[in-house]
Simulated assay, not measured.
Amino acid sequence: MRLLTALAALALPADAEGVPLGEAGGTLALPLQEAVEALPAADESRAGYIRTSFKHWTDADKDQCNTRQEVLLAEAFLAPGQGARCALSGGEWYSPYDDIYVDAAGGLDVDHMVPLAEAWDSGAGEWSAREREA
């Protein structure tokens, strides 16, 4: 609910002092339904979508662990072992979507919570390659 409330702040005016609602000094309290209704809406377009437009599995901090490995390490319920070049072994993760524990990292999808085609439809097609990678 906080996320939707925060997103709704983007579409709402400033308070009496000119502080945008939802920022430091401003306040915003809306029921969830009103926050959702306040979100801006626009037509989506999949024109030009190519899956390879989204570079992933990069090693942004150059520590030998790519994005997938970083997420697996950060979200492990029971930490996996970490070998050369960040090879992960063992470990356990909890999946709140189906209320199960997973003990094989290969059984997890961690690359995105929003399908890339949906991100494209919603505006990622306007982003630079660097923004899509980030």
Rank of each mutant, 00 (worst) to 15 (best):
73 L>T: 01
54 F>M: 08
57 W>E: 11
53 S>C: 08
42 A>H: 15
3 L>T: 09
118 E>L: 12
53 S>H: 13
60 A>F: 04
55 K>Q: 11
120 W>F: 05
12 L>Q: 00
30 L>N: 02
100 I>T: 15
26 G>S: 02
50 I>M: 09
92 E>K: 11
30 L>M: 01
118 E>A: 13
111 D>W: 03
4 L>S: 05
69 Q>C: 02
43 D>E: 08
93 W>I: 00
70 E>I: 15
111 D>H: 09
47 A>T: 02
40 P>W: 04
56 H>N: 10
52 T>F: 09
57 W>R: 14
114 V>E: 13
54 F>D: 10
24 A>S: 13
128 S>V: 05
118 E>H: 15
99 D>S: 05
100 I>R: 02
42 A>Q: 14
108 L>W: 06
130 R>N: 07
114 V>S: 15
95 S>G: 05
94 Y>G: 09
5 T>A: 08
28 L>C: 03
35 A>W: 03
45 S>N: 07
4 L>F: 11
125 G>V: 03
59 D>C: 01
36 V>E: 12
102 V>T: 09
104 A>K: 03
5 T>E: 14
119 A>E: 13
42 A>N: 14
83 G>F: 03
83 G>Q: 06
100 I>D: 04
116 L>C: 06
40 P>D: 07
122 S>L: 13
78 L>C: 00
82 Q>A: 05
60 A>L: 06
3 L>S: 12
5 T>Y: 09
81 G>W: 01
39 L>T: 12
88 L>H: 00
122 S>K: 13
123 G>D: 07
130 R>I: 07
67 T>C: 11
9 A>C: 05
111 D>L: 13
37 E>F: 12
48 G>E: 02
129 A>T: 07
129 A>Q: 10
46 R>K: 06
45 S>R: 01
133 E>W: 10
107 G>S: 08
130 R>C: 08
1 M>E: 14
118 E>I: 12
84 A>V: 14
72 L>Q: 01
67 T>M: 12
120 W>P: 06
50 I>K: 09
48 G>T: 01
26 G>C: 04
56 H>A: 10
104 A>E: 09
54 F>I: 03
113 M>P: 10
38 A>L: 08
81 G>I: 00
3 L>E: 04
87 A>V: 12
6 A>F: 12
48 G>S: 02
64 Q>R: 14
47 A>I: 00
50 I>R: 11
117 A>F: 04
113 M>G: 11
114 V>I: 08
16 A>L: 15
100 I>Y: 04
80 P>H: 04
31 P>Y: 01
132 R>W: 07
96 P>W: 15
28 L>D: 05
15 D>H: 05
123 G>A: 10
22 G>Q: 02
28 L>E: 07
72 L>G: 01
110 V>Y: 04
57 W>C: 13
43 D>P: 12
20 P>S: 05
62 K>Y: 12
19 V>P: 15
17 E>N: 11
40 P>H: 03
83 G>L: 03
90 G>H: 01
15 D>K: 06
34 E>G: 12
93 W>L: 00
79 A>G: 06
94 Y>S: 08
84 A>S: 09
64 Q>S: 13
51 R>Y: 06
117 A>C: 05
126 E>Q: 11
79 A>K: 03
43 D>K: 11
105 A>S: 05
122 S>M: 12
